[in-house]
Amino acid sequence: MMREFGLNDVYFLLLAARWTIALTLASTLIGGLIALVVAILRTMPFRLANWLAIGYINLVQGTPVLGQLFIFFFGFSAFGLDVGAWTAAVTAFSIYASAFLAEIWRGSLQSVPKPQWETSAALGLRYFEQLRYVVIPQAVRISLPPTVGFLVQLVKNTSLAYVIGFVELTRAGNMLNNATFAPLIVFLTVAAMYFVMCFSLSLTSRKLERSLHVAH
């Protein structure tokens, strides 16, 4: 049965967009926490930790996120663990985000000038105190633009979760298209919603950048 694309459908898409946002937020949060640990392991003066972090980053970056989605969705059930689409998607995108954020943040940590470490060491701060009070605050400022750049990618990449049946914006668009056979208007609306999400992310970052004392 065919019907017209109407305001109700826009509302339907907006509801689905909430899941795109939720998936992005959850993966950013969990992925960000993992990334922080990995970035620190990657930069600390301890070889074994460096190697572990490098291995993790390469492994995750070297495999497609689509494959990771399948692994967590179908792979877990092979072990009798029945995970839903949401759990599988959050797990896959968290891990995906963690590797990329770790690499971005590693670069930011390393671009804080070495004398900043030395000076804080000379004041009696221990390694993790130097990291927390001197290095990370400066690295955050440096990392802001590339981090937001990645998050914009992440918002759009969450659309891949539709392959495991997770209903987010793209999947919802697909469903509407099947009902209305109006692909142009449906997917233009979908694209517009992605654009609004990504563009507001970029705007926020630009505002944030201006309000911070950036290292020279």
């Binding site: 004398p115 900043q116 000076t119 400066q138 020279h216």
Partner: peptide, 23 residues
């Protein structure tokens, strides 16, 4: 040090108090 190395993200006061507070 030769290159001062003040902490650029902290005010003069916070630069001076950092080690006192943390250490």
């Amino acid at each position: 040090f030769q290159s001062y190395n003040l902490f650029p993200h902290l005010s003069v006061e916070r630069n001076v108090t950092l080690a006192l507070r943390v250490v």
